[in-house]
């Protein structure tokens, strides 16, 4: 990794252009360190969501019937549409990272904006779904409807568990998306000023990793929440 050559005194300006901090041998090592740090953070995120997936697994194995009922009360069409939208946003993000690597400023800005629009669309659809849940009395709490036709009170109490997990998991996921949109807004402003070059584009790459992670979580949430025993319908 470390070349003995070091840096000529006159290259201080060049180093500033590459955002090279003094503790690193070269830009490559710095980038690798940043990337590793981001991956360690994402692993902690896996464990963060992992706790919820763990709770889901335990309760679904205990109350399979209630989970199937809870799942059937979700809006399958919006859930599927959102999956398509979010994967599309991952494509635009991946292309944005590529544009940053190639130093294509205009493409980078527009691809980031496209990603933000798709992310906002996802949150909009999610908002419509949440609104439906409120109207239909599927939100756990005082207004939860226990008198759904064909569902006994005992099972309805188990359905509440599904809905609690549904709101915790999709809520935490939506929160991550909102954070992601904020980060991308910052990227757009920086990119507009020409901050990212083929030599320095680490923030775009790392926020890209974050956005793909959010997509990954949804790839599991979609079948686990929306697709339980759908063939009964």
């Amino acid at each position: 990794m470390s070349h003995s050559a070091g840096h000529a005194p006159g290259s201080a300006v060049a180093e500033l252009d590459n955002h090279l901090e003094m503790q690193f041998d070269d830009a490559e090592q710095q980038k690798e360190t940043s990337s590793f740090g981001m991956w360690v953070f994402l692993v902690t995120e896996v464990m963060f969501f992992g706790g919820l997936f763990m709770a889901y697994l335990v309760y679904r194995s205990q109350y399979p019937q209630a989970f199937a009922i809870g799942s059937s009360q979700l809006n399958f069409k919006l859930g599927t549409a959102n999956t398509v939208v979010l994967i599309f946003s991952s494509l635009t993000m991946a292309l944005a990272v590529r544009a940053a690597q190639l130093g294509q400023k205009k493409a980078l800005v527009w691809l980031l904006i496209a990603t933000m629009i798709l992310g906002a669309a996802f949150l909009g659809f999610k908002g419509i779904e949440y609104h439906e849940h409120i109207l239909e009395g599927h939100v756990p709490g005082a207004n939860f409807r226990y008198d759904t036709p064909g569902v006994s009170f005992a099972v309805a109490k188990e359905v509440v568990l599904f809905n609690i997990l549904y709101f915790c998991m999709t809520g935490l996921h939506a929160f991550h998306m909102i954070v992601g949109l904020g980060l991308m807004l910052w990227l757009v402003i920086k990119a507009q000023k020409g901050a990212f070059t083929p030599a320095y584009n680490t923030p775009v790459e790392l926020i890209g990793l974050y956005w793909h992670f959010v997509d990954l979580v949804w790839i599991y949430l979609y079948p686990l929440l929306y697709l339980i025993d759908r063939y009964h319908k």
């Binding site: 990337s35 590793f36 991956w39 994402l42 692993v43 896996v46 464990m47 992992g50 997936f53």
Partner: peptide
């Protein structure tokens, strides 16, 4: 890099321990 690959595998491995 191999270190990144290892980090990803460890993340999945740790989740599998939990589950």
């Amino acid at each position: 890099s191999k270190m990144t690959k290892l980090t990803v595998i460890l993340g999945v491995f740790w989740l599998m321990i939990l589950l």
